[in-house]
Design a protein around this nucleic acid. Sequence first.
RNA 1: GGUUCUGUAGCUCAGGUGGAUAGAGCAUCUGCCUUCUAAGCAGAGGGUCACAGGUUCGAUUCCUGUCAGAAUCACCA
Length: 625
Amino acid sequence: MIEQVIKENVIKAILEIYGENLDEKLISVQQTKKEFDGDFTIVVFPFVKQLKKSPETIANEIGNYVKENVSEIADYNVIKGFLNFSLTNQFWFDYINNNNISEKKFRDEVDIALFPKKNIKHHNFLDSDCKSNNLFFSEKSEDLFVIEYSSPNTNKPLHLGHIRNNLLGYSVAELLKESGRKVVKVNLINDRGIHICKSMLAWQKWGNNETPESKNMKGDSLVGKYYVKFDVEYKKEIFSLIAGGMGEEEAKQKSPSMIQAQEMLRMWEAGDEETIKLWRTMNSWVYSGFDVTYKRMGVDFDKLYYESETYLLGKEVVQKGLDAGILTKKEDGSVWIDLTKEGLDEKLLLRSDGTSVYMTQDIGTAILRFNDYKPDKFIYVVGNEQNYHFQVLKIVLDKLGYDWSDKLYHLSYGMVELPDGKMKSREGTVVDADDLIDEMIHTAKTTSDELGKLSEFSEQEKNEVHRMIGLGALKYFLLKVDPKKNIVFNPKESIDFNGNTGPFIQYTCVRIKSLLRKANEQGIDVNLKNLSFESIKEFKKEIILLKKVYDYHLVIQEAAIQYSPALIANYAYELAKEFNQYYQENPILVAEEDERKVRLALSKLVGFTIEQALKILGIEVPERM
RNA sequence: GGUUCUGUAGCUCAGGUGGAUAGAGCAUCUGCCUUCUAAGCAGAGGGUCACAGGUUCGAUUCCUGUCAGAAUCACCA
């Protein structure tokens, strides 16, 4: 790392020139802003107090020393208190030449991940070389991360909010892997509970034995239809009870449908055969629907947990806590934990009828998962509407004596809202996941057909490209935003395909692939090794691009620490934009031989880096578009 | 009311650990395809970084307060 070298030499300079030991924390090496000459900058203001000279003098004296002592430094300049260093071209030449070590294992992995369909002919960035230890691999960390995401309820189809969750979870997992951590992706399926009973009850009462086959409907949609139906009938009942003179709270409790749903939950927890059978059937419909949607989104899991298999453990633990006097039982039989000392309220852990609630189940699954993996960190990708829930969960586990509770991390993300507010499943104001994906792919197809660049492709190949672009646009749209911020999605304005978008970045990558393909056809060697730089006079724009590539591993580490794919998305965009400028201004294939080799090598390196970044976002790059 | 989060161009968003003249995209306007993919490039206009204090050589960034918005505080999940 050249930054470290500069830093160390600044310290040495200060020691030798001024005889002072400078606190390392005062030195920050940052990239020089574009408007100024140089590659890396030291801000000397923090040294002024200790060294008792003017900023300009200090900067010049340090600059001179470092230039003399570090061979990679070509020159320096001083503007006010800013000391700007320029690196030698040789440094960047070496950088390209040294970053082309062949890594077959890596090549195979990426090849399979990126190009599962071998029938499309493609140029692969990795087919010769292009992976380096110091550029793309960071130090291996032994930390094991368990990341839970998706966590669907099996009573309704997935909507746009779930898409954000799934993409975020998948992407953070990929990001952590790329940063050198070990990752296990898990999905906790909320397959039981009062909400599931609601759709079961509605289907039983009004379903006329409909099945996904008989209605030719996706299973999750069919079940979701009955979840909505329950709510409609429930509201009607409350309305008529209130009209009969009952108070609203009482009406909510005494509505026949609600009482029946609660009874069904009791039956379920008691293991009633018929209830369990219905539950199995309807859940299986939902799972086959989810499978389709997960596949389209391109997300996957290493391990599935079902709440129906973990909630009993939660109940057991709660009982133990009760015996130990940590929890309290009220007269009606309900079990609570008192968190008033922590500045929170009392929290219910078991209902008066003995059935378990959300918190009970989460206690159970947390313990089970810890025992399964003994991870260094648990990440829960769950919306910010549950901030309070996770705050409580950590405290409850801690109180119950689980000292690993501080390993839980709630990766809280913002809601996806419509222009007029929140999406609500029960009221039908949701953007359905399958519908939206269809729309995105359709828009990609329309645009693509207008441009007409895929005329040589078969229908099947075209569809594959449209799928990649439509999903690329959707994924980038959702992932480029800081996770904790809310996203407003306006269904009337379609998601962009131009500008700061997924397709823009994909397009840049496709252009590079095209270049390399043409070079290949013309018999031009695109091997990056042993490049000759002697005949190259101007290398300025190339350095700007290389600096961006050089940033890749820094961005990965920072993004991993922050659990933020948004940083990767923005990086990919900046790199793509930078390359497009370069591409526009500099002929590559028709350049003179040495220059052509260097430019191709650089293009290849950039293309590879962009594709890597997009892979972390779950975005694929087609061969043409 | 308590807790947490957000507030940057008309709109959607970037702005590591405080640093130089706050950046992109969309939208509006102007140029660039007989040369490697124009889903592109170049340029113009557009800002009291919500507001007020504080910390210091320096604050969009850190601290406090105010205002505005969101989430949550359920025998829903």
